[in-house]
C-alpha cells in the first residue's frame, strides 16, 4: 500500500474522495487515507453508466472483508464510465488509489462545485486534524 501520499494535481472531499478534473468531466476515487482505513478492498459495488451522482451523496460501495463503506460523490453529474478493472481486482484501490484504482468518470453538471473542495494542502491539514 506504500506510504501516505496526496497528489497536488487533485481536489479532495472531506469524505476522503479525490477528483481529477479533465475539462467538463472528472475522475473520482478514494484517497490513500480512505483505502488505508478501509483495509484490503475485496468488492466494488459500482453504479451503472448513465446513473446520476449527487455531490455529498453515496454513489457506490467498497467492501473490505469486515466492513462496507459508502463512497461519496465529491461533485454532481452523470457517470460516463466505470472502472471495470476495480470490479474484477478490487485490490487496485489499495495498491494504486490515484491510478489504476480510479472508480468512475463523471460528466459534471455544475463545475462550480469544485470551489467547495479542498486542495492538497487543505486536505493534508484536514487529515492532521482527524488524528
Amino acid at each position: 500500500m506504500g506510504e501516505a501520499n496526496y497528489p497536488a494535481d487533485l481536489k479532495y472531499h472531506r469524505e476522503h474522495d479525490w477528483v481529477r478534473l479533465e475539462g467538463d468531466e472528472a475522475v473520482f476515487g478514494i484517497t490513500w487515507f480512505a483505502q488505508d482505513a478501509l483495509g484490503e478492498v475485496v468488492y466494488f459495488d459500482a453504479p451503472d453508466v448513465g446513473a446520476a451522482v449527487v455531490a455529498d451523496d453515496a454513489y457506490a460501495e467498497l467492501e473490505s472483508v469486515k466492513a462496507v463503506s459508502d463512497v461519496y460523490a465529491p461533485l454532481s453529474g452523470e457517470v460516463t464510465a466505470v472502472n471495470d478493472a476495480v470490479s474484477t481486482s478490487p485490490g487496485l484501490v489499495n495498491s494504486d488509489p490515484y491510478g489504476e484504482g480510479w472508480l468512475v468518470r463523471v460528466r459534471l453538471s455544475d463545475p462550480s462545485q469544485v470551489d467547495g473542495l479542498m486542495d492538497q494542502a487543505a486536505y493534508t491539514q484536514y487529515l492532521e486534524g482527524l488524528s
Partner: peptide, 19 residues
C-alpha cells in the same frame, strides 16, 4: 499489525492483507 477491540482485548485484526 492493525489492532481492534475484541471481547475486551486489543487483538491483531490483520497484518496488512487478511486474504
Amino acid at each position: 499489525a492493525r489492532f481492534g477491540p475484541f471481547a475486551g482485548w486489543e487483538m491483531p485484526l490483520h497484518y496488512g492483507s487478511p486474504s
